[in-house]
C-alpha cells in the first residue's frame, strides 16, 4: 500500500496555560453518589497491568482472578495487560468472561528493533489470543524529525493487529514537550490508532494530567473534523482513585459523556484497583479498613 505522508498541521500548545487548565480539574469536588459512581466507572476502565521481568504464569493467574472478582461491589476491570509470552495464560484464566487480554508488543518498552521484528511480535501476540495490542512508537525517529517513519510503523502494526485493537504509546515522558505530544497524537490518530496512550510506565514521568489533556484535545479536534472517535489511555503513576476521578472529570469536561466508557477511556494501572476497593468500602461503611483486608493484585 503506498501512502503519501504529509506532516499534519496541529495547533501549538501553551505550556503554562495547559498546566493551569489541567490543575483546575483537580479542584473538582466529587462526593457522595457521584463518588460511588465515579469509583465504579474508574474500576471498569482499568487495564490491570503487570509488566515485570519477574512475571510468571502464577502472577498473571493471580491478577486475572482479581480482575474477575474484585469484591466490594466493584465491577470487573476492562482488561488484563501482560507481555506477549503470558497472553495464553491470561486468555485461559479469563475464558468465559468479557475481560479483554491486552498485550504490549513491538519490543516494549524501548521499541528498539527492526520494524519486521516488531510486527512479527505483534502477530504472535494476536495469534496467542490478545484482543488488544499496546505498541510503542520509535521516540528516536520522532525526535529526529522522521515523522513518516512513525506513520509507517503505526500503519504496519495496525495491519499486523488484524482484528485486535491497537493502542499507540507515545511515551510522552521522552517526547517531553506538549507540542511534540500534540503532533505525535495526531500522527498516531491519522495512522489508525484505536487508542492513544501516554506511557509505558517504564519512564518517569508517566501520565500527567496536562499531557493527557493535550491528547484529549487532539482526540476531540479529530472527532469534530472527521466524526471519528479515538480512545485515550493514560498509564504510569495513576495510583489513587482521587486522581483517577479527576482524570474522569477532565474527560467529561473535554470530550463529553460519549467517552465516559471503557470502550473509549482506560487507565493503565497496577495498584489503582485496590485503592478504588478501599474507597468503595469506605463509602459503604463510613470507615477505612486496613489494607490487610485487600487481596494482592
Amino acid at each position: 500500500m503506498t501512502h503519501a505522508f504529509v506532516v499534519p498541521r496541529v495547533p501549538s500548545v501553551d505550556a503554562v496555560a495547559v498546566e493551569e487548565r489541567a490543575a483546575k480539574f483537580r479542584t473538582r469536588s466529587i462526593k457522595k453518589d457521584a463518588k460511588i459512581k465515579g469509583l465504579k466507572l474508574v474500576a471498569s476502565m482499568i487495564d490491570l497491568t503487570t509488566l515485570e521481568g519477574m512475571d510468571t504464569p502464577g502472577k498473571v493467574q493471580m491478577l486475572c482472578q482479581k480482575a474477575i472478582s474484585p469484591g466490594s461491589g466493584c465491577p470487573q476491570v476492562a482488561a488484563i495487560c501482560v507481555y506477549p509470552t503470558l497472553v495464553p495464560v491470561a486468555k485461559a484464566a479469563l475464558k468465559g468472561t468479557s475481560i479483554k487480554v491486552a498485550s504490549v508488543a513491538t519490543y516494549f518498552p524501548s521499541g528498539q528493533a527492526s520494524l519486521k521484528e516488531r510486527t512479527d511480535e505483534v502477530r504472535r501476540a494476536v495469534e496467542a489470543g490478545a484482543d488488544e495490542i499496546d505498541m510503542v512508537i520509535s521516540r528516536g525517529d520522532f525526535l529526529a524529525g522522521h515523522y513518516a517513519k512513525i506513520d509507517e510503523e503505526i500503519r504496519a502494526t495496525r495491519e499486523a493487529c488484524g482484528p485486535a485493537h491497537l493502542k499507540v504509546i507515545l511515551e510522552t515522558g521522552e517526547l517531553q514537550t506538549y507540542d511534540n505530544v500534540r503532533l505525535a497524537s495526531q500522527i498516531a490518530i491519522d495512522a489508525g490508532a484505536h487508542f492513544i496512550k501516554t506511557s509505558t510506565g517504564k519512564v518517569s514521568p508517566g501520565a500527567t494530567m496536562p499531557v493527557t489533556l493535550v491528547m484529549l484535545e487532539a482526540i476531540r479536534d479529530h472527532f469534530i473534523n472527521t466524526g471519528k472517535m479515538v480512545g485515550m489511555k493514560p498509564a504510569g503513576g495513576i495510583r489513587d482513585s482521587k486522581l483517577a476521578m479527576h482524570y474522569l472529570a477532565m474527560v467529561k469536561e473535554t470530550l463529553g459523556d460519549a467517552w465516559l466508557s471503557p470502550d473509549w477511556f482506560r487507565f493503565g494501572a497496577s495498584s489503582l484497583l485496590n485503592d478504588v476497593l478501599m474507597q468503595l468500602e469506605k463509602q459503604s461503611t463510613g470507615r477505612y479498613h486496613s489494607d490487610r483486608y485487600l487481596s494482592l493484585s
Binding site: I30, K31, A34, K37, L41, F223, I224, E253, D257, L260
Partner: peptide, 13 residues
C-alpha cells in the same frame, strides 16, 4: 453529528 454531548451521565453531586 460533530457536537460533543456534555450531559448528565456522571454529574457531580
Amino acid at each position: 453529528v460533530r457536537d460533543l454531548l456534555f450531559g448528565d451521565l456522571w454529574d457531580y453531586a
